[in-house]
Simulated scan of single mutants.
Amino acid sequence: LDTALTHWADTVAATTGADRRDTAGAGAAGGVGFAALAILDATLVPGIELILNLADFANHLSNTDLVITGEGTLDEQTLHGKAPAGVATAAQAAAIPVIAVCGQNTLAQPRLHAAGFTAAYSLSSIEPDITRCFTEGKTLLKHLGTHIATHHLPQTAIPPPPPPNHQTP
C-alpha cells in the first residue's frame, strides 16, 4: 500500500507540478486531504476553525459570562485540533473564561491554562470507579454543574430558585 500511495503521489506531483504530500492535513481521512489539495487545489482548514466560523461563535460570545466545553478524555490530543481546544482558544481571545468538563483529565493545570482553559473538572476526580461514572453520569454531571455555577459564574448570573410549588412550563 505504501508503494502504491507513493507512486500515486509521485504521479500527481508530476502531473500537477506541485508535490503536496507533506502538507499538514494531506494524510487526513486516508489521503483525502492530499487529493483535495493536489487535484482540487483546495485549502485545508482545521475542522474546529470551520465549525466555529460557520456557527459565528465569536459573535455569540457577547454578553457571555462563561463557556463550558467537554470531551471524554482531556489529554494532549485535545490540544492538537480537537473541538474543546478550539473553543477555549476562541473564548480566551474574547476574554471569557472556559471550563472543560470531561470523563478523565490527564493535563496538568499549567498546560490547561496555556491552552486557554480556566479550569477542568472530570467525573473520574469525584468518582474513581469508571463503571459508576457511566451509570451515574447524570448525577455526577449535575454535581459538577452546580459546582461550576457556584464557583465560576457571577452570582447575578445564577437565577434564584423558584418558589415552593412553582410550576415551570
Rank of each mutant, 00 (worst) to 15 (best):
Gly17Arg: 05
Ala108Val: 06
Gly103Asn: 06
His152Thr: 10
Leu144Ile: 14
Trp8Ala: 12
Thr73Met: 06
Leu66Phe: 01
Gln104Pro: 00
Pro84Asp: 09
Thr156Lys: 14
Val98His: 02
Leu112Glu: 03
Leu74Lys: 11
Asp65Pro: 00
Pro169Phe: 09
Asn53Thr: 14
Thr156Trp: 14
Pro162Phe: 14
Gly17Thr: 08
Thr106Val: 07
Asp75Ala: 00
Leu40Trp: 06
Asp22Trp: 03
Asn53Glu: 15
Glu127Cys: 07
Val67Cys: 07
Gly72Asn: 09
Arg111Met: 13
Gly17Ala: 04
Ile39Arg: 09
Leu5Gly: 04
Pro163Tyr: 15
Ala36Trp: 04
Leu50Ala: 15
His60Pro: 09
Ala26Val: 09
Ala14His: 04
Ile96Met: 00
His113Gly: 04
Val98Ile: 01
Ala83Trp: 00
Thr3Met: 04
Ala88Tyr: 08
Asp2Phe: 09
Ala120Asn: 01
Thr131Val: 03
Pro110His: 07
Gln77Ser: 11
Ile68Tyr: 03
His166Glu: 05
His147Trp: 02
Ser62Gln: 15
Ala91Leu: 00
Thr64Trp: 02
Pro110Glu: 05
Val45Ile: 15
Asp22Ala: 12
Arg20Cys: 12
Ile51Glu: 04
Val45Lys: 06
Ala29Gly: 08
Thr139Trp: 02
Thr106Gly: 02
Leu140Ser: 08
Thr118Leu: 13
Ala29His: 12
Asp10Ile: 01
Leu112Trp: 05
Ala149Asn: 05
Gln77Glu: 11
Ala13Val: 00
Val87Trp: 14
Lys138Tyr: 03
Lys82Cys: 02
Leu61His: 06
His151Cys: 05
Leu50Glu: 13
Asp10Arg: 07
Thr168Trp: 12
Pro110Cys: 12
Ala38Trp: 13
Ile68Pro: 06
His80Asp: 12
Ile51Pro: 01
Leu144His: 03
Ile51Val: 15
Asn63Gln: 13
Thr135Arg: 14
Ala120Pro: 00
Thr43Met: 09
Thr43Pro: 08
Thr73Gly: 04
Cys133Asn: 10
His151Gln: 14
Thr3Cys: 05
Asn59Thr: 15
Thr78Asn: 08
His147Ala: 10
Gly25Tyr: 00
Cys133Ile: 01
Thr23Tyr: 07
Asp19Pro: 01
